[in-house]
Design a binder for these strands. Structure first.
Lengths: 131, 131
DNA sequence: CATCGAAAACTACCTTGGTAGTATTACCGC
DNA sequence: GCGGTAATACTACCAAGGTAGTTTTCGATG
């Protein structure tokens, strides 16, 4: 099974939130993950446990045992998932053009002056590096 | 029922592609939609018809009859769907920060010099309008 | 008017994400 | 060693997206 199922990561809400907990906190028990998710009373313990099992089937997480408990950790990198999800959306909605997306979002959302400045700086630096 | 089901538009692949056909070509029969989708032999006629019916239930499209045929048209605007989908992803992945998203994508994708320039221009103009 | 072809209606099935209850099991403390 | 508790395992459902076959219907055309 070396096949790296690059199926494409298109995670649902709960799956993504669980991944974000694992990325932020590192290896965690089901307990920990549940507690971390917004106040911790949002989902039944077994819901988290079930999702983690399903996610392990998909290769998103893996676990080891520590005594009785399963300690889960992310099996895919955050940047990787973020990239594929963002790229996916970019392709689906804007034919892959970052400029088109930025254009659309500038027109349709509030973007603070601070954010504008940050983006501009990034672009400038990027252009320099490019040449 | 004036309630405009702002349920959030999170469309699947096929649904989005169908919408894109309707946005681009305007009102269309099932035939037309099917023909338009990549060469037209990708999906069975009934697949398109079924999806359109389901999408009508969700309020994404509506139809009128022309003789025997149903003529479908988009019931939601492209910019609206695009905005909600893009915003949704922005929230889910980048806590709503456009700057973070741009940063991530600049680091992880190829962006042409041309695109960089376009984005920069947009930002500059935006800043002016803002003041 | 009979028929045939195309269109819609109906039905069915699969997958995935999400949600959680119930049943087992195994460790920990006494 | 035994019991209780907490963890996993098992099972079950629902909804939505997707995919398409089968059946019915209706209108055009000879």
């Amino acid at each position: 099974m070396n096949n790296q199922h690059h199926k494409q990561h298109r995670l649902g809400d709960l799956q993504l939130r669980i991944m974000q907990v694992l990325w932020a906190r590192g290896a965690s028990t089901v307990q920990k993950v549940q507690a971390e998710l917004n106040a911790g009373d949002e989902f039944a313990y077994t819901t988290i446990a079930t999702m983690l099992r399903k996610m392990e089937d998909r290769g998103l997480v893996r676990h080891e045992t520590a005594g009785r408990r399963f300690v889960y950790q992310a099996a895919v990198e955050e940047s990787e998932v973020t990239r594929t999800m963002a790229t996916d959306m970019l392709e689906r909605l804007f034919e892959g053009s970052l400029a088109d997306m930025v254009h659309h979002l500038l027109d349709n959302r509030d973007v603070s002056a601070d954010e504008l400045a940050r983006i501009e700086k990034m672009i400038v630096q990027r252009k320099k590096k490019k040449t």
